[in-house]
């Protein structure tokens, strides 16, 4: 569904990605693991066209996106949930939820999103999205892209800094949306969490993908993974 080949990216003068290659099949949950600064977030931003300069190929459903603008990439059916969550303080919770335009039919309805995140329904009248707790903001950030009909989701560290009970809820959400046929590319620092949701893991180092580990072989590769991640 998503095929990345030889992806290079720059922020100003600094060359961050040095030829990233990987692919995500339809219906899969795939993670990008790696230490801080390995290029995981930059990979996601490059897919969305949010870096200064990029080269290489980003193919989505056979369509080349590497030369497209972020809005065209979103319209092709990829939705992005950034690491900093990107909740807008000048918008109410409901306005945040309704902000991303519908890009394709088949998204979740607002009621389905509220059923998945009951907290959001209670907080729907909150006037400023940033008044929500960190966990609620994360749910809002995920919930609002489920509405758009995009079937490929890029989630950048959705569990970062959240309480264990919220992390579990996000894990349930990812398994639930996978069941509904969404495809997910997930950036994670926490591979124990990643192991509970993912089909495959790519390991990144110094702006490259250096390894691929299927989730069922994760246990056998624990030693290698510890070396990669330095944990």
């Amino acid at each position: 569904m998503l095929e990345i080949k030889g992806l290079n990216a720059w922020y100003g003068e600094s060359h961050i990605l040095h030829g990233v290659d990987f692919n995500v099949q339809e219906g899969e949950v795939v993670t990008l693991l790696g230490r801080n600064g390995a290029g995981k977030t930059t990979t996601m931003k490059s897919i969305m066209g949010l870096v200064g300069r990029r080269e290489g190929s980003v193919k989505f459903r056979g369509q080349e996106l590497a030369d497209k603008m972020p809005n065209q990439i979103a319209r092709a059916g990829i939705a992005f949930c950034p690491e900093e969550r990107g909740i807008f303080g000048s918008l109410s919770v409901t306005e945040n939820l309704m902000l991303p335009p519908i890009v394709a039919p088949g998204g979740l309805t607002v009621d389905e999103i509220y059923a998945m995140f009951p907290n959001l329904k209670e907080r729907a009248r909150t006037a400023h999205g940033t008044r929500l707790s960190g966990g609620e903001q994360q749910m809002l950030a995920i919930g609002r892209i489920l509405r758009t009909g995009a079937k490929m989701l890029l989630l950048d560290e959705p569990t970062e800094g959240l309480a264990p009970v919220i992390v579990q809820q996000i894990g349930r959400t990812i398994r639930e949306i996978k069941k509904r046929g969404f495809t997910v590319l997930l950036v994670e620092q926490n591979f124990r969490f990643a192991a509970t949701v993912a089909d495959r893991h790519y390991v990144m180092e110094h702006g490259k993908v250096v390894d691929m580990i299927p989730n069922r072989e994760l246990e056998a590769n624990m030693g290698k993974l510890h070396d990669y991640l330095g944990v």
Partner: peptide
């Protein structure tokens, strides 16, 4: 209005609004 919400959001974080599919 929703147009206004999009405007306010783009004022805050234009790249993200564009990554949602809005022609900023």
């Amino acid at each position: 209005t929703s147009l206004g919400a999009t405007l306010r959001a783009a004022t805050e974080n234009a790249p993200l609004v564009q990554a949602f599919g809005v022609n900023v």
